[in-house]
Design a protein around this nucleic acid. Structure first.
Lengths: 164, 164
DNA sequence: CCGTTATGGTTGGTACATGCAATCAGTTGG
DNA sequence: CCAACTGATTGCATGTACCAACCATAACGG
């Protein structure tokens, strides 16, 4: 048998599964205001603003692919963001069905304050961590996300218990 | 000043915040059936079953405290679990207002298959990781969760940007 | 040129997750 | 015994998400 995985590995996997379950449940509560006088940015909207900011104008479909969400979900969230004046939907010259989403100045400002606040919470949470652990955690999280992305992108069934 | 945090640390924090945002969004999709012929266990219900199994009979309020959720949320989810025959609500002898929640045999069976399936996905996702990284990720996640727990338990406001 | 099929996006309907406010029942301490 | 408290449930509102149906435009094939 090729690299069975020691008992220790299994214990790690079990522990990771457990902690992830808890994390996903609890982390949603760390939901923040867009700043002192700013409007609230929905948890879902924050991710969109951030990704739009970091990667430039995108189409709805590209956002949906990034988050592995249904197009309709993105559509509604984007509609809300536009309503709030945080993004604009410009017709795409190349394809008149499509729209390019772009942050407004207001959107950039709201993202910036919200992001600062969220980073502040994370920094506070990790206040006592060593720089090495911080760096490790960052890189392990990124690796995990990459694996998750692949898992969700590829065949959505291969990764079962084993046989089947 | 005490350990200002180097630029590298800041970059790690930013990266961690980013990855967590994505993780929380994406990880919810890894939602599984309770087994081949078993009923579906809601994402929320899985956590309850698992915690109940691992720590023995609990009250609703204790579950709510563990997950940092409102009592009403737990109440509904527990009602659904009872409906499905996965847990029982036994009157508590000490306090007749309270109920002790206990897994049924069926609940244990469903948990066991669901958990196996989830662990299978995680194992698959982490297939290529070194044992060291697995162990590190497990322990860092646990530490992060502990910090999160503390943050949510304690004053829900102290962890702002910094001064204030 | 049209049909046919494919693609980008929106809208209707539905389900789950969650919080707050109100309520009920039982407990505790004057 | 009454007041204040606590465990739990229920009503109501909101956010997140999916699927199915739909509209508009594109891309192809006669």
């Amino acid at each position: 048998m090729q690299s069975v995985g020691s008992e220790t590995d299994l214990a790690s996997v079990e522990s990771i599964e457990q902690e992830l379950t808890l994390l996903v449940r609890r982390a949603q509560k760390v939901h923040l205001r867009g700043g002192p006088t700013e409007q609230v940015v929905e948890r879902a909207a924050y991710g969109i603003l951030a990704w739009l900011h970091d990667t430039g104008p995108l189409r709805s479909s590209e956002l949906a692919a990034h988050f592995h969400l249904d197009a309709s979900t993105i559509s509604r969230q984007v509609a809300a963001l536009e309503q709030a004046g945080l993004v604009t939907r410009e017709p795409d010259a190349d394809d008149r069905r499509a729209l390019r989403l772009r942050l407004t100045d207001r959107g950039k400002k709201v993202l910036s304050t919200t992001r600062a606040e969220r980073r502040g919470v994370v920094r506070e949470l990790l206040r006592s961590w060593s720089p090495e652990d911080l760096a490790r955690f960052a890189s392990l999280l990124a690796a995990f996300n990459a694996g998750l992305d692949e898992h969700l992108t590829g065949d959505p069934h291969t990764a079962e218990g084993g046989q089947r």
